[in-house]
Design a protein around this nucleic acid. Structure first.
Length: 563
RNA sequence: UGCCCUUUAGUGUAAUUGGUUAACACGUCUGACUCUGGAUCAGAAGAGUCUAGGUUCGAGUCCUAGAAGGGCAACCA
C-alpha cells in the first residue's frame, strides 16, 4: 500500500514539494491554502484546486488553511462564505484551525504599506482611473510615469492617512507601488495597492474605507500564515513577479512562500466561468446555483454525485500546466464506479405498459426476494410484491423485433428480475392509433427465482413492478447542460447559450416498487437497467422526487442506434 | 507583432531525469460471462512525441531557429 503510493508518478507540484523536503526548505514544513473569494459558489474546477491543496497537505503531513480572499467588500457576502465552507467539508476536507480571512490582516497590511511609503517605494496617485489606465500603456509599449510619482515621503504619508480616515470620496486617490512603468510585465507598472471604497465589509463593517488589492493582500497573507506552497491557476502566472516583489518588501529571509501555478479544469458540455454560471441562474435557464445541471459543487451534490467520485475524478485528471478540456465521460466513469458499489438497486418503470399474466391467479400476491446490491454483501435483501398485472418498460416489448433484440416479443420468453420467466402470447392494440394497450403473457410456475426451474437460460432479464403495489414517483431526467461539447462554437450571430441542451431536463411520473416509499433526500439508488438516481431535496412524504444522476451504460442503445 | 506559459494516441496524464519496441486511465471496437444488454473479465485498434536543423553511440527529454495555442493592458480575484 505504502509502496504503490510511492511508485505512482508525481505531478510537477509534488516533485517541487519533495525537492523542498529533500533540501530542508522552510524547516521542512508543508503548508498550503485554499483562498476562495466569497463572491460566488464553488464549482468542480474549485473542487480540483481543493483536492490539490488539501491533498498535498495530507500526503506530506502538512497543513492546509482555508482563507477567504475578502478584499473587495462590494462583491462579497457571508452567504458565499457559508456555502463555500459547506462545500469544502462536504467534499471531505478539513482546514487547519479556524478559517482565515484576508480581512484579518488589514491592520498589518496597512502598516506594511506605511513602511513601503517610508522606504519611498509607494506613493499616492490622484490620477483618475481612466488616466492611470492610459498611462499604463499597452503590453507592446511602455507606460508613462504619473505626475504624482515623486511626491515626498511626508506628503504621501499624510495623504495616505487622510485616505484611511475617510477624507476622500471613492476613486479619487490610490496608493501605488513604485516599481517600473516600462516593465514588459503590465503588473509591474506601478500596480495599485490600495483603493478607496466607502463600503460595508461583511466582517470589518465600516472600520475601513480603503481596501488592499489582491496583489498586496495575497502574498502577504500567505506570509503571515506561514504558507509554504501557494498553489493557484495559470492566470496568476504573470502576477508572480509582483507576488515576489511584495514578499521582498517584508520577508526576513528565513522563510519564503512560493507561488506555483497549474492549469484550471475545463469540462466539455458545460461552462465554468462564474460570470456565465451567474447568467444561467439570473436568466432562468436553470433553477438556481444548486440546479442539478450546474457544475457547481452544490449542483453536483444535488444531482447525486458523491464526494468520493469527485475526489477520484480530481485524481484522475491530474495536475499539469497545459490547457485541457476533460471529457465528461471521465467524470461519469468516476461517478458510476462509486455509485455501483454503494447504490441500492430498485426496480422503477419509467415508461410503463401493462402486462397481464393470463395464467396467474387473480388476486394472488407473492412476495419475492431481491438483493439490494450484488456488489455489497452487507446490503441485504428486500421484499417485492408480485401479482397478475405488472408494468414493464414499453421499450422492453417489440411486436416486430430486429435480430438482436432479446427482450419481449410475441412468442418470446423473458425473465422477470427476481420473479418468473414469462412468455408473450400477444398484445392488445388501440385500433385507431396502433398503440400497445396491454401485453398478454403466461408464466411458468416452476421458474420462480430461486427454484430449480429458474436455472434455464433466457436471453434477457427485464425489470417490472406490480401494478397494484407500484407507487408513483416524479423522476427528473437530467442530461448534459449543453448539446455541444464546446459551447463557444456557435453559428454567426448566436452566442454560447444557443448551445444549451433543450432536453437537459425531462420530468416524468414513473411506477416504482413500494420499497422506495420511505426514501430520504440525498439517498442514492440504482434503478435497475436504467441508471443512478438520487432523492431530491424537494421530495415530500406524499410526493417522492428523484433526480437522474447518470444513466447506466447501455450497449443495446448503441446497437439500436446504429440502425 | 513586448513579455510570460504551453505543445506526447480521440481526451487527459506518464516516461527511472539522455538509455531498448513511448506507458496508464477514460473513450472506441471485439469477444466471454451474467437473473441488470449493468457490473466483471479477456483482447484489439489508435501517437513515433508541433516543424526544421543540430549535439550524441543513443533525444519525447539537450541546443538553435521557427510554428501553433493560451495568458497579460480592472481602483476584480
Amino acid at each position: 500500500m505504502e509502496n504503490t503510493e510511492n511508485t505512482k508518478p508525481l505531478n510537477f507540484i509534488e516533485e517541487i514539494v519533495e525537492e523542498d523536503l529533500r533540501t530542508g526548505k522552510n524547516d521542512n514544513r508543508i503548508h498550503t491554502r485554499f483562498p476562495p473569494e466569497p463572491n460566488g459558489y464553488l464549482h468542480i474546477g474549485h473542487a480540483k484546486a481543493i483536492c490539490l491543496s488539501f491533498g498535498i497537505a495530507q500526503k506530506y503531513k502538512g497543513k492546509c488553511n482555508l482563507r477567504f480572499d475578502d478584499t473587495n467588500p462590494v462583491t462579497e457576502d457571508v452567504e458565499y462564505v457559508d456555502s463555500i465552507r459547506e462545500d469544502i467539508q462536504w467534499l471531505g476536507f478539513n482546514w487547519e484551525g479556524e478559517a482565515h480571512y484576508a480581512s484579518d490582516y488589514f491592520e498589518q497590511l496597512f502598516a506594511w504599506a506605511v513602511m513601503l511609503i517610508r522606504k519611498g517605494k509607494a506613493y499616492v496617485d490622484e490620477t483618475s482611473a481612466e488616466d492611470i489606465s492610459a498611462e499604463r500603456g499597452v503590453p507592446t509599449q511602455p507606460g508613462k510615469e504619473s505626475m504624482y510619482r515623486n511626491r515626498s515621503v511626508e506628503e504621501n504619508l499624510d495623504i495616505f492617512m487622510q485616505m484611511k480616515n475617510g477624507e476622500f470620496p471613492d476613486g479619487t486617490k490610490v496608493l501605488r507601488a513604485k516599481i517600473d512603468m516600462t516593465s514588459p510585465n503590465m503588473h509591474m507598472r506601478d500596480p495599485v495597492l490600495y483603493r478607496i471604497k466607502h463600503a460595508h465589509h461583511h466582517r470589518t463593517g465600516d472600520k475601513w474605507c480603503i481596501y488592499p488589492m489582491y496583489d498586496w493582500a495575497h502574498g502577504q497573507s500567505d506570509y503571515i500564515e506561514g504558507i509554504t506552497h501557494s498553489l493557484c491557476t495559470l492566470e496568476f502566472e504573470v502576477h508572480r513577479p509582483l507576488y515576489d516583489w511584495c514578499l521582498d518588501q517584508i520577508a526576513d529571509g528565513s522563510y519564503r512562500p512560493r507561488q506555483i501555478e497549474f492549469a484550471r479544469l475545463n469540462l466539455n458540455y458545460t461552462v465554468m466561468s462564474k460570470r456565465r454560471l451567474l447568467q444561467l441562474v439570473n436568466e432562468g435557464y436553470v433553477s438556481g446555483w444548486d440546479d442539478p445541471r450546474m457544475p457547481t459543487i452544490c449542483g453536483l451534490r444535488r444531482r447525486g454525485y458523491t464526494p468520493e467520485s469527485l475526489r477520484n475524478f480530481a485524481e484522475a485528471v491530474g495536475i499539469a500546466k497545459r490547457e485541457n478540456v476533460i471529457e465528461l465521460t471521465l467524470l461519469e466513469h468516476c461517478l458510476r464506479e462509486h455509485l455501483n458499489k454503494i447504490a441500492r438497486r430498485v426496480m422503477v418503470v419509467s415508461n410503463p405498459v401493462k402486462v397481464l399474466i393470463e395464467n396467474y391467479p387473480d388476486g394472488k400476491v407473492e412476495i419475492m426476494q431481491a438483493e439490494n446490491n450484488p456488489e455489497d454483501e452487507n446490503a441485504g435483501m428486500r421484499d417485492l410484491p408480485f401479482s397478475r398485472e405488472i408494468y414493464i418498460e414499453r421499450d422492453d416489448f417489440m411486436e416486430d423485433p430486429p435480430k438482436k433484440f432479446f427482450r419481449l416479443s410475441p412468442g418470446n420468453e423473458v425473465r422477470l428480475k427476481n420473479g418468473y420467466i414469462i412468455q408473450c402470447t400477444g398484445a392488445d392494440k388501440d385500433p385507431a392509433t396502433g398503440e400497445i394497450k396491454q401485453i398478454r403473457c403466461t408464466y411458468d410456475p416452476t421458474t420462480r427465482s430461486g427454484l430449480e426451474g429458474a436455472n434455464r437460460k433466457v436471453k434477457a432479464t427485464i425489470h417490472w413492478v406490480s401494478a397494484h403495489h407500484a407507487i408513483d414517483v416524479e423522476v427528473r431526467l437530467y442530461d448534459r447542460l449543453f448539446a455541444t461539447p464546446d459551447p463557444d462554437v456557435v453559428e454567426e450571430g448566436k452566442d454560447w447559450k444557443s448551445n444549451l441542451n433543450p432536453a437537459s431536463l425531462t420530468i416524468i411520473v414513473a411506477k416504482a416498487e413500494p420499497s422506495l416509499a420511505t426514501a430520504k433526500p440525498e439517498e442514492k439508488y440504482q434503478f435497475q437497467r436504467t441508471g443512478y438516481f438520487c432523492v431530491d431535496k424537494d421530495s415530500t412524504a406524499s410526493k417522492l422526487i428523484l433526480n437522474r444522476t447518470v444513466t447506466l451504460k447501455d450497449d443495446w442503445a448503441k446497437i439500436a442506434g446504429r440502425g
